[in-house]
Amino acid sequence: MRQTLVSWNVNGLRAISAKEEWRWFQESGADVFALQETKATPEQLAPELARPEGWHSEWASSVVKKGYSGVAVFSRQAPLFVRHELPETEWQGEGRLLHLEFERFHFFNGYFPNGGAEELDENGKPTGRFKRVPYKMGYFDAFVRYAEECRKSKPIVVCGDFNIAHREIDLARPKQNVKNTGFLPEERAFLDRFVSLGYIDTFRLCHGDEPGCYSWWSYKTRAREKNIGWRIDYFFVSEELRPNVADAWIAADVRGSDHCPVCLCLEF
């Protein structure tokens, strides 16, 4: 049995659904389709978008700020269990995580926090500190605790926008970004730790150190046309699923968002 899983930061579901590119949702052949940065609640959407026919739908939306964050998962099979957001209350409210349990694995869809704006000193000069990095790192720690607890019963699949480029090969201009959030040492160290716990970056498993492979490009500088991007969207699986990874790829030709979809095929 083969299962195709897709993850896509759509940067606003209402906006992308009005574009021709949204047809790729149905054309992808996915069994599980995870969205990040939906920026909407299902009540704000047309029924055929919020709960498309033939799919089971789950949503986690921000309650602290409207039109912000949000994740959704559409699956061909109904999950055995669903949790909306992490169990610890201090990490709830922003609509950042969905946990669905399926027959063979726990599935996590995350829109993980970014580091926020750089803090300024009393003279208005940059400090090198970013407002949301402490929250971001705390969130990752809480996620790992929860994932490791779930892993005791079944393997883990986690996808989404991690807002971190792991290694220099994962962004076009590493030297210019060593002091920018998304490529800070402490952020990259989290992914080092995650990998050390036995979580596999499936794209690198399948493609090795292939360069120039990115999943996000800034709108501001027309970076996509120049392929000046970052690989910050991932599919990780726990080590137990290594033999089941049939393929993983980046659908870089799919437009409509500043992110493109990333995909994983598992074979059981």
Rank of each mutant, 00 (worst) to 15 (best):
R2A: 05
R2V: 09
V10Q: 07
I16T: 08
S17N: 09
E20G: 02
E21Y: 08
R23C: 06
F25A: 13
Q26G: 15
E27S: 07
F33Q: 08
E37Q: 06
T41F: 05
E43N: 03
L45W: 02
A46H: 09
E48N: 13
P52M: 07
P52T: 10
W55P: 06
H56Q: 14
S61K: 01
S61Y: 12
S62G: 07
V63E: 15
K65A: 04
G67H: 01
S69D: 00
S69T: 00
A72K: 09
V73H: 05
S75P: 11
Q77L: 12
A78S: 14
L80H: 09
F81S: 04
F81R: 15
E85W: 02
E85Y: 05
L86C: 06
P87H: 05
P87S: 01
T89F: 00
Q92V: 05
G95A: 03
G95M: 04
L100W: 02
E101S: 14
F108E: 05
N109H: 10
Y111G: 04
A117H: 12
E119I: 12
E119V: 08
E122C: 01
K125A: 04
K125V: 00
T127V: 03
G128F: 03
R132W: 00
V133N: 02
K136E: 07
F140H: 13
F140P: 00
F140R: 15
D141Q: 13
Y146S: 10
K152Y: 02
P155L: 12
I156K: 03
V158C: 13
D161L: 13
D161K: 14
F162G: 06
A165V: 13
I169A: 05
I169C: 05
R173F: 09
R173Y: 07
N177I: 08
N180I: 00
E187A: 14
R188E: 12
F190C: 15
R193Y: 15
F194I: 10
S196T: 06
Y199A: 11
Y199K: 14
Y199Q: 12
D201H: 09
L205P: 01
C206Y: 04
C206G: 02
D209P: 00
E210W: 02
G212E: 15
S218G: 13
Y219S: 12
T221L: 08
T221N: 13
R224A: 03
K226S: 02
K226W: 09
N227T: 06
G229F: 11
W230R: 07
R231I: 14
R231T: 12
V237D: 10
R242W: 02
P243W: 01
A246N: 00
A246G: 01
D247Y: 04
W249R: 15
A251P: 09
A251V: 05
A252F: 01
A252R: 12
D253E: 14
C263D: 08
L264H: 08
